[in-house]
Amino acid sequence: MTDHLPPQVTAEPGAKARLSPRKKQRISRAIQYAVLVAIVVGIALYADWGSLAENFAKPDVADKALPELFTVALRNTIIYTVGGFVFSFVLGLVLALMKLSTVRPYRWISTLYIEVFRGLPALLIFLLITFLPLALPGFEVPGGTYGQGILGLGLVGAAYQAEVFRAGLQAVPKGQVEAARSLGMSAARAQVTVIIPQAIRIVIPPTTNQFVALLKDSSLVLFLGVSGEYVELAKFGNDLASQYANATPIMVSGLTYLLVTIPLGHLSSRLEKREVRAR
């Protein structure tokens, strides 16, 4: 065998001299580092750090935001978000069950709702809500400003949550319904006792993401023309920023959002991993 080397080994004379894949990788990485360093040095040299700090991170302006940042703004953000979330959770479940219903018109209604509310910008819904009292004289959204904000977030969130629930309900194996039905449970009883509890478990991670999305969308309450005790984080930051002609309060609001959204994001991915392991 040894005195009979296969010809293809020697057929590529340059093979040895050319760069090995590992060497290529090393050079490519070195170039990427060089580009990064160049960009960082460039930004560090050309940015006016003093002016940036003055406008975006001024300690005494940031100080003005306290304690209302937490006692009023964050509190309201959470009220709008949790309210909208509960609304969208319930309506979303109903829409998902309608979408999977054997009654065809229910499926149509649900599909239409989901398509419309997912297809429209959330901002547009909020603008429309401000016109509700004009359209329906004498009608007032219960709960006043809170109610309006919760309604807007809930209507939009329900469309997304419905799709989350639909996927969750369909992810429950068919054998589960069959087992329940074969024990004599009615179709409705099987849904309530066996299918929905499992679907809710499956949708916990994507639902956490929905909650984060609603939390961010709660900034749209700004367009309801809220003021005073009803302001949430975005509006609060914006108002203070105008007052002091300085962007620091907006930055502070932003940090407060991150204080909630980043841990929730991590929670969601941890739940997702647990869900994968449990299967």
Binding site: Q176, R181, L183, S186
Partner: peptide, 19 residues
Amino acid sequence: DAVRRRIGMVFQQFNLFPH
């Protein structure tokens, strides 16, 4: 549903309720 109460069924995939 009433008839099924008198018929026990055992599946290949068990189909226990995991929750």
